[in-house]
């Protein structure tokens, strides 16, 4: 059975990165697993699980010609991983406010103390250069219940941080 590797690639965004990279992986017999890719600050970032029946060095050699031609930083780690190990989020939290340092730290600090296990987080800076707005969405598991998280978030308003929390009530049908 193939081993799992985590490939991380970062570099200036341009069209065609995913196609070129995954073509090279496919040609080398790799099987792709879960992945997250997005454009951050003009850079394209990729994190992807790659199943490969070989050594880390061999996989690096497969990817390097492509990553160098696209000017991407490449990092390869063999990882302990498996598919079908998803944890289901049961809460979704949205946060926004006038951008300043410390928003993520304050919000996630309070949430962590109240039992939140973050499964997915994405954030963005919107607004204008003169008055930027920080926006963050979190999905997670509320190990100590939703009320505990609500209490933690209620303290954020006085700090100029607007928050909203919604239970994720997953329908199984």
């Amino acid at each position: 059975m193939a081993k799992w590797f985590m490939l991380t690639l970062v570099g200036e965004d341009r069209p065609g990165i995913v196609a070129k990279l995954t073509h090279a992986l496919f040609e080398a017999g790799c099987n792709l697993g879960e992945a997250s890719m997005m454009r951050l600050g003009g850079n394209f970032t990729m994190m992807l699980m790659v199943g490969f029946d070989g050594k880390s060095k061999t996989l690096s050699d497969v990817v390097t010609p492509v990553s160098e031609s696209l000017n991407l930083h490449l990092h390869v780690d063999e990882i302990n991983a498996a598919l079908h190990t998803h944890l289901e989020p049961d809460v979704r939290i949205s946060v926004y406010g006038a951008d300043r340092t410390g928003i993520v730290s304050e919000v996630t600090g309070a949430l962590a103390e109240s039992g939140l296990h973050i499964l997915d987080l994405e954030s963005d800076v919107a607004g204008s250069k003169d008055s930027p707005i920080y926006v963050m969405h979190i999905e997670g598991h509320a190990a100590e219940g939703i009320d505990s998280l609500r209490a933690a978030l209620s303290l954020m308003k006085d700090r100029g941080i607007e928050t909203s929390l919604e239970e994720i009530d997953t329908l199984i049908g």
Binding site: H84, H86, E88, P89, I168, D169, T170, L171, I172, G173
Partner: peptide, 13 residues
């Protein structure tokens, strides 16, 4: 919008 899963689509919501 809401989260859904399905007996006929295991391990994905």
């Amino acid at each position: 919008k809401g989260r859904e899963g399905c007996l006929s689509v295991p391990d994905y919501t």
